[in-house]
Nucleic acid binder design. Structure first.
Lengths: 251, 251
DNA sequence: CGGGCCCTTGAATTCTCTCAAACAATGTGG
DNA sequence: CCACATTGTTTGAGAGAATTCAAGGGCCCG
């Protein structure tokens, strides 16, 4: 486990947030925006591979991902690891598992990540003075549940091939609306070990399964990442219908 | 899929709620109690085996379980079923998956179930006028996430025997604080098919796995249910530490 | 008494894991 | 620039886990 190597940098005002103009996110009223801008106390930059939060710790902060990818995971005592979900720009970190109290999972950066930092102990202000934002928080928690439900269905009941196809389609679906693939070609910044730990498979079998997907020209694995060639084909193979999500809130 | 066979019966006032006095739940202020009592519009009784909510439907209601057991599940097109979580007295139904919009999962009663009914479209009132209750809603969503995280870890990374032990310990842990085992002997009202669909295993292999737990005198399967003989042994075998939960809110 | 539901068991097959080894790409220190 | 270590990917083979198929038994209820 490497050190966070965290640097507090100057703060990007929320009014100039590069994510907020995206059509994927709901619009904010000016007063909401100004409150969030005051709620945000700083920024945190984390290296790829570094740990953002550790299971069992108490974190005084909530984070919103400004850029980069990360993942949430839990481990068993003997080292077996299960990746629970992935975190991308616009996602809130720190709400999952508990509002207060110990973190029930760890978070690790997959790429260099920039985080907006919020003080957890100012949450009551949100609930008392900003009902719409409080509603958004619950909505966000509910969205996370929906993803976990899907992942649970997948791991529990889909075959290895369907599972892999689902995961890649899922990550593609989430990321494509975030304008993070400038050249158009979607590359997921994962290793096969991450895929294995998400699907609940061994790395050897994961490799053989991904190879089958590549043989069907649904994906191509290269340059330490997964290139999505045919997202529709992946969804079809997995029997997953994709997200039915219009605009979503983000804080 | 059988019909709900739902009956609206007379309403138990929240002031006389049999669950609220339990030490497991946090105390309510009088005004919170009176608001919830007005928020509650009725009661619904559902037979064992009946479907409470169906995936894809729009439900105008939220429910709190007053008595009985149920479970949330999702299905693939070809009929494979994954049970996502169980629902017991004090649990809120209808928050998972989406605040508004289509249900993303179905719910089925395991025993006869009595539900307190709330109007979903009065949720904004909660957020605007009852910040503490709004906070509780988010807390409840967060608790559900924690359980889903644990279940995901279990299905993804635990062996069949560990998984079964975890599930039974988990259900026992949740139910023991609810005062629903009057005689002291804990019996979980499940069939082995339910266990199989929760663990992501076939029914045959589930049966053989449960038999091993019985041989270790951790459980006894009889009378259409699972008798917990040694919950500490189950936790130990599964490597699960149990809930670290003090008082919890409920609505 | 028959039918349905649930539990149980055995056997063959399929899937997935572990072990083992090798290769490619990258980065580091000399 | 090369030697070397590290990380990530690939492949084969044997062992182990879990599935499907098949059949039988117990119990409750109409």
């Amino acid at each position: 486990m490497s050190k966070p190597n965290a640097r507090n940098s100057q703060k990007t005002p929320c009014e100039q947030c590069p994510l907020r103009p995206l059509p994927h996110f709901r619009e904010f009223k000016p007063e909401e925006l100004s409150f969030v801008s005051r709620f945000k106390t700083g920024e945190l930059v984390v290296d790829a591979g570094a740990t953002v939060l550790v299971e069992g710790s108490h974190s005084a902060h909530l984070f919103t991902v400004l850029s980069g990818w990360a993942f949430r995971y839990k481990m068993l005592e003997d080292g077996r690891r299960q990746i629970l979900n992935y975190v991308m720009p616009g996602d809130l970190i720190g709400l999952q598992g508990s509002l207060l109290g110990e973190m029930q999972h760890s978070i690790e950066a997959l790429t260099p990540v920039t985080l907006c930092v919020f003080e957890r102990d100012r949450l009551p202000t949100v609930f008392h003075n900003h009902a719409e934002l409080a509603y958004d928080l619950t909505w966000i928690a509910s969205r996370e549940e929906r993803m976990l439900d899907e992942n649970l269905l997948s791991i529990g009941r889909r075959s290895a091939l369907e599972r892999a196809a689902y995961l890649l389609a899922f990550l593609y679906d989430r990321s494509k609306v975030l304008n993070i693939f400038p050249n158009g070609a979607a590359t997921l910044p994962l290793t096969q070990q991450h895929v294995a730990d998400t699907l609940g498979l061994s790395i050897v079998h994961t490799n053989k399964t991904l190879k089958k997907l590549a043989e069907k020209t649904l994906i191509r694995w290269a340059d330490r990442g997964c290139h999505i060639l045919d997202d529709k084909g992946l969804r079809q193979l997995s029997g997953w219908e994709g997200f039915k999500e219009s605009k979503r809130p983000f804080i």
